[in-house]
Design a binder for these strands. Sequence first.
DNA 1: TACGATATGGGGGGTCCCTCCGTTTTGTCC
DNA 2: GGACAAAACGGAGGGACCCCCCATATCGTA
Lengths: 191, 191
Amino acid sequence: MNAAGPGRRADSRRNRQRLLDAAEEVIERDGAQASLEEIARRAGVGSATLHRHFPSRQALLNAVFHEGVERLCRRARELADGLAPRDALAVWLEELTTYTTTTRGLAMTLMSGPGGAIAVEDSCHGLIHDAAARLVTDAEKAEVLRAEVAPHELIALANAISLASEGDPGSARRLLALALGGVLKSPPAKV
Amino acid sequence: MNAAGPGRRADSRRNRQRLLDAAEEVIERDGAQASLEEIARRAGVGSATLHRHFPSRQALLNAVFHEGVERLCRRARELADGLAPRDALAVWLEELTTYTTTTRGLAMTLMSGPGGAIAVEDSCHGLIHDAAARLVTDAEKAEVLRAEVAPHELIALANAISLASEGDPGSARRLLALALGGVLKSPPAKV
DNA sequence: TACGATATGGGGGGTCCCTCCGTTTTGTCC
DNA sequence: GGACAAAACGGAGGGACCCCCCATATCGTA
């Protein structure tokens, strides 16, 4: 059916891969709301086949971005092991932001939640969250955070910035630096 | 045609208002991608009439949100006149963020640019930008900003936060406070 | 009241998402 | 090397959407 496992029939695995390749191209051009029918057409399969392999748009997006997201999470572990907690977190957030900014549709995907029938532990959502949690925990222990910050808040912030900069990584880096360093010189007023 | 002016025929003005009322309801429920056909149905007019009054989705959204955005901009002037520059900016950004967070579809609208045939000076985009510019200029003169910040960057950040918090104003306030105060205790590392 | 300008709305074309179901392909067992 | 059941496929169709054309109805005015 829709699993990637080796127990599937050969044509099923082949079609799944074709769909992923086609999806990558179309999403690269049109973002997260790319036409599913066009993806199926480009892959040379019927639209029913696409829906059988990926029961929802979210499932397809998740599969398309899975590899890149895993790479990003390995990178988080490298940074956590190699740098001071504050730098590890700052560098990773910048890499995350740059990646989501330059990968069309990814920020949208990460913002939309894990989605229906996808196991949290291998959704892009879940992977990113776990990677961030490690870095945030380390930073908290080292007391380099200004306040208690939940990992999902930082991810939301990074995603938000990616969305707001609409594909311009320079703008994204700048906004992230602002947010990390603080826009104002003293804390914001209570209203 | 699509202008609101008094030179239009009475039925035209009436239909325009009905469309705006219907749009407000449907957008409140479905956000910025609400069905235009449903809006026309609910207003009791044909879909062609909707398209004649509002040639693009963006034009309709712009008209729907215009009043609220103007109120927000008046508020910016009040704050600029009544508070210290830093507080005026901080308070207004929070009000902006709260408003865009609780008004479904507004953040999306503001992020999508002024859009085709809409005059910049009375697009929601333009109005907000001008309001922010005044506050930012004052804050810069008072040297309470951590770095040179363009108004559109702050607006992008606020919009991004609204989008990221998906309708939860508490979360939005928290993220904004984080961004304004800074997440890290010392400036982020150079990579 | 009659008339021209203005505005309307039904309907059609194109696209999209998703599902049903008859047909084809695959893997396996004899 | 068949035969057979399970698995996978894809065309077609329903429902929804956006947008435009143009025959018709409505409004403001002379």
